[in-house]
Design a protein around this nucleic acid. Sequence first.
DNA 1: TTACGTGCAAAGCATTTGCCTCCCT
DNA 2: AGGGAGGCAAATGCTTTGCACGTAA
Lengths: 149, 149
Amino acid sequence: MTNSYTMINPLVKQMQAAGHRMTPQRQAVLEILTTSDAHPTVDQIYERVRVDFPMTSRATVYKTISLAKEMGVVMELEFGKGSNRYDGKRPYPHTHVICTKCKQVMDADDLEITELKEQVIRKTGYWIVNHRVDFFGICPDCQKVSTHN
Amino acid sequence: MTNSYTMINPLVKQMQAAGHRMTPQRQAVLEILTTSDAHPTVDQIYERVRVDFPMTSRATVYKTISLAKEMGVVMELEFGKGSNRYDGKRPYPHTHVICTKCKQVMDADDLEITELKEQVIRKTGYWIVNHRVDFFGICPDCQKVSTHN
DNA sequence: TTACGTGCAAAGCATTTGCCTCCCT
DNA sequence: AGGGAGGCAAATGCTTTGCACGTAA
């Protein structure tokens, strides 16, 4: 992640083109969302924004994320009990692998689920428009630390 | 779903064997959890229990579900924003198909995800212990009602 | 009998909303 | 200048918790 928000982020233009004003807070939130691979939580985004803009409120972070969601440029990953995470780098359905120990959320978006999806359509008659595929386990790093869970 | 809770539910015995007391409220909650295919919400369970036992509180429903989760006999399906659903009939990971219109949650547990899982293990080096596979779309019934969403 | 379970109400927490002020355009 | 955006605090909604009373075993 960069230390300044001076990069011209395509989302900034996109948001302005959609008739929304640009502010340092918004720019910072968008920058974090689009440059992070770690699927940050709201609080992680909030803390990071406040490094550069200490006056920023949680409400603004929530509102900006909400706006980005509406524009379809950020995907929300709900993990229940207020541990939602956000992805502005790949805001489309893709497979995730989550370490239950260190809470890392890793992309595995090169996995092919087309066949599975076609099975679902064939067997259920649904129109499928979205999917959520998550695998939970222990990442290689955490395996090294302990073999007991 | 039956109208009385007189059936001898294996979970009742199991819970007693684990050293927990049995009460009408617990028996009712367990009966609903294990006989329903509809993946009920806490509130649906609560309302159903109160048909027969109107004095039952939400707290007791939550506590009983929590106990059942700890025993591994009920699986929690988190759908974010307090719309959790519960499955005591198939309390193990399996594929779901969800209608975004009528909110029906359907099982598709005959789908084979082994190959996908092996791909994940091969590509990430994780130990995979669990998974969550959900497809979202429009069910056949809702397709008939309207073709516009 | 007595520790466990229940019901009630209060507390928790992440998120949303209302409202007033400020400032981007 | 005017309306969108931000900040603060209150409200929300689901879930959890504390506590006193009741009850299963």
